[in-house]
Structures are given as structure tokens and as C-alpha cells.
Amino acid sequence: MQKNIIKLSIISLIIFIIGVFFIGLNKSSIYDTKDLVGQKITNIQLDHFSENRIITGEDLKKNNFTLINFWASWCAPCRDEHAMLLKLNNDEKNLKILGVNFKDKKNNALKFLKDLGDPYDDIARDEFGKYSINFGIYGIPESILINKDLIIIKKFIGPISKDDYNFIKQIVRKQ
């Protein structure tokens, strides 16, 4: 009897392990950010792009929703999402867009905005990329949608797509 229990438990353990492997086959083994949704961003401190002041969490609390967009003039995919950002800025009054210029030269950044249009309500500058770590950024373009309480609603890795655009629109208009 006791032997049978041992045998049964060994066999169920094996089935369990193989089952986990089987499900694991269809999971991605690349980093994702789903764990960060729902977290509050603390300690926000960003240098303003042109003015001599610091943007803090208090500034962002004034907006119903903020989309923090990390971009640079040297980043090709950033050009792709630019049109989406312009459209969001035009259509959504409930949403402010904060652009963070990432590891960029000031002149190049200005030229970029002059050529393609400026979708940002405010621009900050992160010359060495250090502040981006505080936002959990690991490659640009990346954007974070937060609400009034600085809680992360969603993170967008890579350029904002049409689907992302619709998602943001839906969230912002629900309010």
C-alpha cells in the first residue's frame, strides 16, 4: 500500500513536470513588462528640455492622463510613431504627452521636431539615459500611459501602433 502511494506520487510528479514543460513551450522567454502595470511611479525627476526647471510627479498629477514617450532623433522607429503621437495630441484633450528626449544632442532633437512636428505638451531631456531607468525603460521608443495617481496603465514597447492608438483613445475617453 505504502509502496503504491510512493509510485503514484512519483508518476504524478513526472506528469506534472512534463505538463509544465509542455505549456512552457508556448510561452515567450523574452522580457516583458506586464508585471509593472498597476505600479505607481515614484520619485519622478526630469530636467526640462529648454527651460531651467525640473519636471516632477506633481506636474504630472495635474493631468488626467499622461503618455510619457521616450524618443531620440537617432532612433528610426521613433519616426514611425510620430504621426500617431501628433494625432493623439490633437484629438485627445484628456491626455497630455510628455516627451523625454533620450541620449540625444539638443540641436538634432530640435531639428527632428521642426521637420516632423511637435506632438509634445512638454519635453524633458535625459542626456545620459539615467532618468529612464527610473521609468523601467530598456530600449526606445517606449511609452508609458499613466493616470492622475501616477499609476502605470500600460507600457508600450516599440513604436505606438494603430492598435495602441485605439487602446489609448478608449482608455482616455472612458473618463
Binding site: 509544465v20 514543460f21 505549456i23 512552457g24 510561452k27 522567454s29 506586464k34 508585471d35
Partner: peptide
Amino acid sequence: IFTEVLTDHK
């Protein structure tokens, strides 16, 4: 693999 499958946590 186990944490990913069982708890959705990497």
C-alpha cells in the same frame, strides 16, 4: 519555466 507557467512571473 515553472514560475512562468504556474504564476505568470518571470
